[in-house]
């Protein structure tokens, strides 16, 4: 549905987007992740025909963004960051204006507006002036606007920023629902969000794609062996010595935590070391208070991937 090939966007002296290529399939939800200034918004602005690329080709639903701009825009629903609205209009008027602008036939306009109001849960404020609405409601008005012409592709720039936790949950539900019938590309830096709604994740940093995969695969990729966190009561040094003797354990670290010690045990390979560790502790007669697997979260992956690059760069320099 979205085809990006060797896309470059150069500002005065930096490449905001530096030679990226990716595809988004029909009805797929892709999360665009990256630190601030990574090039997320720039990429989206190019996809929505707001700015042209310096080099590279982008097609959306089969239309080229540069040559066939109007057709592309007809297929896209775009929610910019900060959701700009005309603050002097009523919600109804605003959506009517947008519906006309998006070439919805006269007879269908009212129906579509009602549907979108319903979908985003803002029917109760439809006669209010948008300027008087709270951030969460404005966000939803923006979302209703992106949906109104039933676009094939939705491009959402940080759709949940600045919302309260309940609203975030609601908006995510809405987006998840939309993902079934639309192709969605959304940017965010809230990681659980991506995990929850996206089929695939694309992490970009300094204008380059540094990782692109399903959330599960990304987690698998970065997990090296299995690691455990334990809380054991007893002499730290001795326990460490004892645990290190287990064949499949590669490293043991510990730190004092209250009247006990917290241990970080890493196994070598994919093997599950929990049983061996447990047996050893029982055998040595120490008191095991807690044992849990340390799972690699997206947050860590994100951190690892985006900082690895910087380290490499600074080493080279």
């Amino acid at each position: 549905m979205i085809n990006v090939k060797n896309l470059i966007k150069r500002y005065v002296n930096i490449n905001a987007v530096d030679d990226i290529s990716f595809n988004v399939e029909e009805n797929e939800t892709v999360g665009l992740l990256g630190p601030n200034g990574a090039g997320k918004t720039t990429t989206m602005r190019i996809l929505t025909c707001f700015m042209p690329a310096t080099a590279g080709t982008v097609t959306v639903a089969g239309f080229d963004v540069f040559a066939d701009s109007l057709n592309v825009r007809q297929q896209i629903g775009y929610l910019p960051e900060n959701v700009p609205l005309y603050l002097d209009m009523r919600v109804n008027e605003y959506l009517m204006f947008r519906a006309k602008l998006k070439n919805i036939p006269r007879r269908e306009r009212r129906k579509k507006i009602d549907y979108c109001l319903e979908m985003t849960g803002i029917s109760n404020v439809q006669n209010q002036i948008t300027g008087t609405l709270s951030k969460g409601y404005r966000q939803r008005v923006g979302l209703a606007d992106t949906l109104i012409h039933d676009p094939k592709v939705l491009i959402l720039d940080e759709p949940t920023i600045g919302l309260d936790p309940n609203q975030i949950m609601q908006i995510r539900q809405v987006i998840k629902g939309l993902g079934e019938k639309h192709t969605v590309l959304l940017s965010t830096h809230i990681l659980p969000e991506v995990e929850m709604v996206c089929d695939r994740i694309m992490i970009i940093d300094k204008g380059k794609i540094v990782a692109m995969d399903t959330p599960a695969n990304l987690v698998k990729q970065l997990k090296t062996g299995s690691s455990l966190v334990l809380e054991i009561k007893g002499n730290g040094e001795k326990i460490k010595e004892s645990l290190s003797k287990i064949g499949s354990v590669s490293s043991v670290r510990f730190s004092e935590k209250g009247d006990a010690n917290e241990f970080f045990v890493e196994g070598s390979g994919e093997e599950d070391i929990r049983e061996a560790v447990f047996k050893r502790i029982v055998k040595d007669n120490y008191i095991l208070r807690e044992m849990r697997r340390q799972t690699v979260t997206l947050e860590e992956i994100f951190h690892q991937i985006t900082t690895r690059e910087t380290e490499e760069v600074s080493e080279n320099a």
């Binding site: 602005r45 929505t48 025909c49 707001f50 109007l70 057709n71 825009r73 007809q74 896209i76 775009y78 910019p80 900060n82 700009p84 609205l85 005309y86 603050l87 947008r98 602008l101 998006k102 070439n103 923006g142 606007d145």
Partner: peptide
């Protein structure tokens, strides 16, 4: 200033 130029210019309008 308000950024509405972005929503305006990304709708199918010349």
């Amino acid at each position: 200033k308000s950024g509405t130029i972005e929503t305006l210019m990304t709708s199918p309008v010349t």
